[in-house]
Computed example of a mutant assay.
Amino acid sequence: MKKLLNTVYVTTEGVALRKDGENLVAEVEGEERARVPLHMLASLVVFGPIHISPALMAACAGAGIAIALLDRNGRFRARVEGPVTGNVLLRRAQYRVSEAPEPVVRSILVGKVANQRSVLMRALRDHREELEPGDRDAITAVTERLAFILRRVERSDGGLDVLRGAEGEAANLYFSVFDNLLRVPDPDLRWKGRSRRPPLDPINALLSFLYTLLTHDCRSACESVGLDPAVGFLHRDRPGRPSLALDLMEELRPVLTDRLALSLINRRQLRAGDFEKRDGGAVVMSDDARRTVLTAWQERKKEERLHPFLQEKAPLGLVPYLQAQMLARHLRGDLDAYPPWFWK
């Protein structure tokens, strides 16, 4: 089993990152603020204008430490990595399966819809008394409809468009009651529907930020087992898009990111004042809010759950790597099907 390594997130503008021996050193105005051994790192994520020395970039590339460059709002800009690794036979198998991906897509969607339904059922179980009767009825109706879609996906022998249609229907139903899960009185912290590029309200800004972090982890997971992150099954190929990483994160989003977003809002760890509306309507998080989210994200990844296929407990942060391994084993023919990850 792959050892769970750390990701370093750098959010303070003006930080200079350099290599000192076998360590990453962070300095602000020439004063050392942090020092991390390189052998403890899996990746480095920087936000906004951060200086990275050429020596550090070379050391990270040689050690297999990916560097992700995001803008200050968390939008992906670039990725720096060393030589491409992986078994060419595995990638050829991946490309062949991508031409007829329905079995893999079906497994991904079974995991995604089941986990969406689990998030809603957990909310009903844990907060039934706090929910208004209308909210309870709406969430219950959606869980029943998601159960129907789940059975339809499991039994479907239709093509890719049919499966994508089921995925879109499930997503619309799930997000139609997302606002019912928010237990805060602030009218500025309400869900009005999904908006991206740019996010137009605080909840969408928070979700987009968390999705960016999960995409980074899923891409690293794909590359760690030798898969091509650009060639997916559910998501269509597009230049610059890590389609396989987006596929891998679909079944994990409801649990790893959506539930974390709900917790941060419902526990009042984030408030309306932590978000700022820019010209053009885009909503962004403050620097302090980003640090709060990153801390909560790292803590969330430490939580352990039983992997339903492996029957082993593993930290949530390791799940993308485990799922990438399961996918690689399926593509090599070691597993008859790709086993999705179910949250329980």
Rank of each mutant, 00 (worst) to 15 (best):
N6I: 06
T7P: 05
R18Q: 13
R18T: 12
R18D: 11
R18E: 08
E22A: 14
V28G: 04
V28R: 15
E32Y: 10
V36D: 05
L38D: 03
L41H: 11
A42K: 15
V46G: 03
M57P: 02
A63F: 13
A63Q: 15
I67M: 07
A68K: 14
A78C: 04
R91V: 12
A93M: 03
A93P: 05
E102A: 08
P103R: 13
V104D: 02
V104G: 07
S107A: 15
S118G: 06
R128Q: 05
T140V: 01
L146S: 05
F148Q: 07
R151N: 03
E169S: 05
Y174S: 03
S176Y: 02
V177T: 09
F178I: 00
N180V: 05
R183G: 01
P185V: 06
D186Q: 07
L189W: 15
W191K: 02
W191D: 04
N204L: 00
A205H: 08
S208D: 00
L213Y: 03
L214P: 09
A230S: 14
A230Y: 15
D237Q: 12
R238F: 12
S243K: 13
D247V: 07
N266D: 01
R267A: 14
Q269M: 08
L270T: 09
R271Y: 08
G273K: 09
V284Y: 15
S286Y: 12
S286C: 06
R291L: 08
T292G: 03
W297P: 00
R300F: 01
K302Q: 05
P308D: 10
A314W: 00
L316H: 14
L318M: 11
Q325M: 04
A328T: 14
R332C: 04
Y338Q: 05
